[in-house]
Amino acid sequence: MSSAVELLSDIRQSSERRPFEVLKLAEPLLNTGKISRVDDVWLVYEQVFTAAIDEGQIELAKTILTILHKRFNDSQRVRRLYGMVNEAVGHPSEAKQLYQQMLDADETNVLASKRLVALLKAEGHTKEAISQLVTYLDTHANDFEAWLELCSLYLRHNLYPQAAFCVEEIILQQPANHYFHLCYAEICYTMGNLGTALKEYLRVVELSTDNVRGFYGVKLVADRILELGNLSKKEQQDAGLADAPQPATLQRLSQLATERLVHAYNSAGETSKKTAEAWLKE
């Protein structure tokens, strides 16, 4: 039983969205009533609540909400959960009203303003969501989650320079986190800014050991720059290649990436190994 609690806590801390597993793990805890003996029982309740509305089990969510409401009578965090139930059952206007009330009472309420943005996104009003999120980020500029959300909203509209700016802000906050460098590199590569993309992919493989996605990126970008060959000054500047490495260096980078990828796939299954090798030979 305790291992289920540990697994739930692992999932909660990783902030991955795995509602089905959460419900499977929490079901015996809820049915036997053993959940009340768990250390951080209220966090588990909140986690199971989110999983339940993700899986469309509204009844379960409402039961948990009653328990939470009994314990935390006038908590804003619990009020937000009421709004989330309304979102899940398809009453967005009521949810919006609730969040607006919460903001009227306290306009610095982070949870409510984030839910309002999510609500606009769910209704498909991406542009309004973007402008609301920009206002929010004016005040809470150190919220990396919000910057990441803004980045993904911009990407929906193919606004790559704006999205790249958002990731730059996150990288300023967490310069050693290779996932953000990876995101930035991929956006730069899509924009055709090959020089920056190469540097960022190299930063990714520097910050993490044998990062497959990073090495694929290095190989793609290095081969692409070699393929482009001699460009005019203007084109070079557009692709960010003014201070690009020499062709010999690029070739060696590409070789290195191939070598590390072959090494990484040696331990993988037969099919994926074959696919990877076929791709690398091209």
């Binding site: 991955e16 959300e149 996932y179």
Partner: peptide, 25 residues
């Protein structure tokens, strides 16, 4: 950093939306 997965970092829990196909899956 090994403790964090790319799914966890990119997941943005406070912006989750719920009008998706989850209930049919």
């Amino acid at each position: 950093m090994k403790r964090y997965s790319i799914d966890g970092i990119y997941s943005r829990p406070s912006f989750q939306v719920f009008n998706h196909r989850g209930r049919f899956l």
